[in-house]
């Protein structure tokens, strides 16, 4: 029994159903092990964690420079900014908004730089439900290619204080 000292010869190889199951489970674990590296090489969605050290104030300056040189409009007082295709886009997370609004083109790749001015935030793009962590002191770079067009929302899904639920943003993708 499980609560008693085992018989002296307890060290023996599995047989029968146990052995079959261990074999099946091991085979499944091999499948699981292969899946991630496979997708890393052939799949189109990966989280490689590309990041660079940056002071929050410095990042904020880069964001303002990006807004200044690429602004194409405004919505409710928030600048709408259009990065060059294949170029850098900047998104600042702060208590409690995402800044600015990005205007992208479907099928184009962009290097989106995410960082925070203050606390940790959660970049959550809806309704695709793509989620990435945003940390102060880290410029988190996502090489992003929108595959659909329309108006998309960014919410924050990392608790950042009492105004956490007010923290939203927008991404517009033109076809």
């Amino acid at each position: 029994m499980s609560i008693h000292v085992p018989a002296a010869d307890w060290f023996k190889a599995p047989t029968g159903g146990e052995r079959t199951w261990i074999g099946l489970a091991l085979a499944w674990c091999v499948v699981l092990s292969v899946a991630m590296p496979y997708w890393h090489l052939r799949g189109k969605q990966n989280s490689t964690g590309e990041a660079y050290a940056v002071e929050p104030m410095k990042f904020s300056e880069r964001v303002e420079a990006f807004v200044a040189s690429n602004k194409v409009g405004e919505e409710n007082g928030v600048p709408v900014v259009q990065p060059a295709p294949g170029g850098d886009a900047y998104l600042l997370a702060q208590m409690w908004r995402w800044y600015p609004i990005l205007k992208l083109k479907q099928g184009q790749s962009y290097r989106v730089h995410l960082s925070s001015l203050d606390l940790q935030h959660g970049f959550s793009l809806q309704p695709m439900n793509m989620n990435f962590q945003v940390l102060p002191g880290y410029d988190h770079v996502l090489t992003l290619t929108p595959t659909s067009s329309g108006s998309f929302t960014i919410i924050c899904n990392e608790f950042c204080g009492i105004g956490h639920h007010l923290m939203t943003g927008r991404v517009i993708v033109e076809p």
């Binding site: 409710n76 439900n129 929302t153 923290m167």
Partner: peptide, 22 residues
Amino acid sequence: SYGVPRRHWDVEFAGAQVSAGF
């Protein structure tokens, strides 16, 4: 799986600058 966040008080985002919801 619809994107509803954890640790979040208001998934209707009442009062947010850009409106959002599920």
